[in-house]
Design a protein around this nucleic acid. Structure first.
Lengths: 149, 149
DNA sequence: AGCAATTATATTGCACGCAATATAATTTGT
DNA sequence: ACAAATTATATTGCGTGCAATATAATTGCT
């Protein structure tokens, strides 16, 4: 087996591990979030909104690295679930401002135990947790430099 | 802000980073794999098949952690692209054996430069690469222990 | 042998992701 | 002021992922 062929084995490892870990984590969130009637991407949107209530679609997209093709239908689902409202901004009719409803705000309390459950399931020490986070950020920075948006 | 609320900020970090890194890596693969007419999950299937030609759907699913709901349509697409063939096994008609075609085998040469390109884009040293891989495997092991299939 | 589990795959339905396109509002350049 | 470029969002189309269900083949039990 030559070097190129080895690469076709070796490389499967890191990229596949990131891909598989992402799906494994999603699987851990699923039963916890099901109780809140949220999917994981919906939960991420709620996290951002709990932190800072009024956001445009664009601002949400920048923080989550998602475009309107993903966010528009997702936000419509959260709206019809009663967790938020969408309205065009008077100052700039192109922008859509997302506002939490009372039900959306109330959900935050029900979600308060989720982070600890997940941290426990992930089973890393605080140091490993930070190290992993740091390495992943390095990967993202580098990949985005090589393949900009 | 109490502890529970802090969790709703802090936790966004690692899980979101895994999620975002997975999508960033996918974005890096996209232009490289487009030249081979493959998506990233399809490329993963081809990697497994290049390594060991004859596999059942179940065996592929075990290695990639994907079920037939994902694999069946994906394999059909790879078949209609001419890269593999699917046939029921005579010895057990429940099983479907996947066989590479000549075109599927030939694709391996065209893919031989992909791993190096991706490794370069990821921009980690060999040591960091292995460390990240190790941490991700720990996460998967732990998550799967807490949320078994 | 015969019937009840079990197993392997396929199908359906739903929610992402994301490229490509469309549309409407605003900004820019002259 | 006004046409061209830019910006923000929405829509369409396609390929995953995955739960739930269906179907057909095999195995196990008695």
């Amino acid at each position: 087996m030559d070097l190129a062929e080895q690469g076709l084995l070796l490389e499967q490892q890191l990229c596949f591990d990131v891909y598989a870990a992402s799906r494994a984590i999603n699987k851990a969130y699923r039963p916890l979030l099901e109780a809140l009637s949220l999917t994981y991407p919906q939960y991420l949107v709620m996290l951002v909104l709990w932190e800072h209530e009024a956001q445009t679609v664009k601002q949400l997209g920048e923080q989550l690295q998602l475009d309107s093709g993903t966010l528009s239908p997702l936000l419509k689902r959260l709206e019809s679930a009663g967790f938020l409202q969408r309205q065009r901004r008077a100052s700039d009719e192109r922008e859509v401002e997302i506002q939490l409803t009372e039900a959306g705000r109330a959900l935050r309390q029900q979600a308060s135990n989720v982070p600890a459950s997940i941290f426990q399931a992930i089973g890393l020490s605080a140091a490993e947790y930070l190290q992993l986070k740091h390495l992943l950020r390095q990967v993202m920075t580098s990949v985005e430099a090589n393949y900009p948006d």
